[in-house]
Design a protein around this nucleic acid. Structure first.
Lengths: 111, 111
DNA sequence: AAAAAATACATTGTAATGCTATGTATTGTG
DNA sequence: CACAATACATAGCATTACAATGTATTTTTT
């Protein structure tokens, strides 16, 4: 099961989907990078590679959708926390709208 | 509205989604390339560029998910009709399964 | 009748993105 | 003391959508 084609396809589906999921996760709380991977793994069936996440978060930051701040800890490596900006919220709303129309279309097709 | 970021994002979402949609469309009927673009435009909010469709159909063919046959017409340019193969149907079923789990996860996140 | 638009196929080069591999540094565990 | 886990990051590769361009025929408009 899960032929090679399907595996590659799933990777393609992530292009775009990941940013959408991450912005949604950041809507209610701020999280640090490594934690985002864990959160997404917990609440979806999706695994985000570290080599995917960090460049992605940098892009979102560059686009002004999130900000970040370093938080030192008593012990351990400092964490970079991400917060959704006002522009991020607006953008996310537009994305949700598009996603829902897409989802509706696909639901019609798959039955 | 529809900021530049969202436009680029929509294009990224199509990576993977397009193949999924096309296979779904081909489940019940065979269509030729140009017709597939029209069908998808009609039943979804998605526009597929010709420069996207023809290479995509070739990939699906190479992977054995579809076959094609030329059909001459009394007048006009010959049409290349695509049919879903047995492997195509199996693959599509796996894709539907993945899509539904993804959709369920995202639905939880967006509300 | 000529010009323009539509039909129907296709390829090339570009930009964007996820993934593997790799790297650094610290802390916790067997 | 070695190894796994935590936490950040980058570089190169493969994949894919899209704009631009091309060919050829047919239909519509002027």
């Amino acid at each position: 099961m899960n032929s090679e084609f399907v595996q590659k396809w799933q990777s393609q589906v992530k292009k775009g989907t990941l940013a959408f999921i991450l912005l949604n996760v950041l809507r209610d709380n701020e999280f640090y990078g490594y934690e985002l991977i864990e959160q997404v793994k917990k609440y979806t069936t999706i695994e985000i590679a570290e080599g995917t996440l960090y460049p992605l978060m940098n892009r979102l930051k560059k686009e002004g959708l999130v900000t970040s701040k370093w938080v030192e800890q008593e012990s351990g490596i400092p964490r970079k926390y991400y917060q959704l900006t006002a522009i991020g919220v607006e953008t996310l709303d537009e994305m949700i709208e598009y996603w829902q129309s897409l989802e509706t279309s696909i639901k019609k097709l798959t039955k």
